[in-house]
């Protein structure tokens, strides 16, 4: 009964937000529209963070890595091969998935705060590579002048900020829809079960590492697709778009939004990004300090990830948390 009311209210709010997002470019100026388009891309990365942190129980600071891989793949393809949006999206998602697949062995056997550290290192490594590999990435200058995207063969190039924003909105809404549907399937169920109790999942015969690898690669593909939207929105990218601050902000947003729900994660990510953009204006120069404080708060607040780590440190059936001494009296009595 109450659940039904809450579900309806949530559906209503989601519909309202969607309508607001559709009309937004006619309400605000072009500059804000392009910022909004970039925020949409980040929100999609936020979805991938929520998928890993909230649903699968693997808190991550490294989703900027597949995000960057997707963005650079899209930029290279967009400048040299094809200006068709679907092509760029598929290439970017594949690049993100590939990078995630390569890092699977590093990630899926670790848990909790250790995953945070490993994924953070991966993200930083990718930024360094982007800065050094000048022939492809343009080094720290980045890649500029990427031609405007055409959504599909035969479509005109999207010349205005409004058009590019709407393109990003359609892609983000579609992909979020796909994620929500997938989460209702067997895959989503098993991931949530693993987050709850990995040992129990194993005892039922599930290959937990395989599930986690799948989630990691899928999240990489989503972040990669988001990278292609960043390229569409900015027509310019540089390693600065994929720094540690972005990862920390997204994780913070997801944690604030309630790790277990994709909708909450979206709200949280949007909120945190808005606050950041506002803070950069109000407190010039102090942003790193604020971000540092936010990061400490993130790790501290992180509920699922830390729980999972704790659960792993204490094997079930270890004597330390055996309920209470068993009633030996019953045994003796039955014996008499």
């Amino acid at each position: 009964m109450r659940g039904e009311v809450i579900r309806r209210a949530r559906g209503g709010i989601a519909a309202l937000v969607l309508v607001g997002l559709v009309v937004a470019p006619w309400v605000v100026d072009d500059y804000t529209t392009s910022i909004l388009a970039r925020t949409l891309a980040l929100a999609l990365v936020g979805v991938s963070v929520a998928l890993l942190t909230g649903v699968a129980g693997m808190p991550t600071l490294g989703q900027t890595a597949p995000y960057a891989a997707g963005a650079y793949a899209c930029a290279v393809v967009g400048s040299r091969v094809s200006d068709v949006g679907v092509v760029q999206l598929v290439v970017a998602a594949a690049a993100g998935a590939l990078l995630a697949a390569l890092t699977v062995p590093l990630v899926v056997h670790a848990r909790g705060v250790i995953v945070l550290m490993i994924t953070l290192a991966i993200g930083e490594l990718v930024v360094i590579v982007l800065g050094r590999w000048r022939s492809v990435t343009g080094g720290t200058d980045g890649l500029a002048g990427i031609p405007a995207v055409r959504p599909f063969w035969g479509f005109p190039a999207l010349a205005s900020d409004q058009a590019r924003y709407l393109y990003a909105l359609v892609v983000v809404a579609t992909l979020i829809g796909v994620v929500l549907v997938l989460l209702r399937t067997r895959a989503g169920l098993v991931l949530r079960a693993g987050r709850d109790d990995e040992t129990r999942l194993r005892a039922s015969g599930h290959r937990v590492a395989v599930h986690l690898s799948g989630a990691h690669i899928a999240a990489g593909a989503i972040a990669g697709a988001a990278g292609s939207l960043l390229v569409v929105a900015q027509q310019y990218i540089s390693p600065a778009d994929f720094g540690f601050d972005t990862s920390a902000l997204l994780l913070l947003g997801v944690v604030i939004g309630g790790t277990a729900s994709v909708g909450g994660a979206l709200v949280g990510a949007a909120l945190v990004i808005a606050v950041r953009d506002w803070l950069f204006g109000v407190l010039p120069g102090h942003a790193p300090l604020v971000l540092g404080a936010l990061f400490v708060a993130t790790v501290y607040l992180l509920p699922t990830g830390v729980n999972r780590a704790r659960g792993r440190l204490r094997p079930r059936d270890a004597p330390a948390h055996e309920p209470v001494a068993h009633d030996q009296a019953t045994v003796a009595e039955a014996h008499r």
Binding site: L189, A193, R200, A203
Partner: peptide
């Protein structure tokens, strides 16, 4: 298959799930 001395279930999943 086994059951554990301390019941182990998935707390956020329904009984059916």
């Amino acid at each position: 298959n086994r059951i554990h001395q301390r019941p182990a279930v998935f707390p956020t999943l329904t009984a059916t799930e």
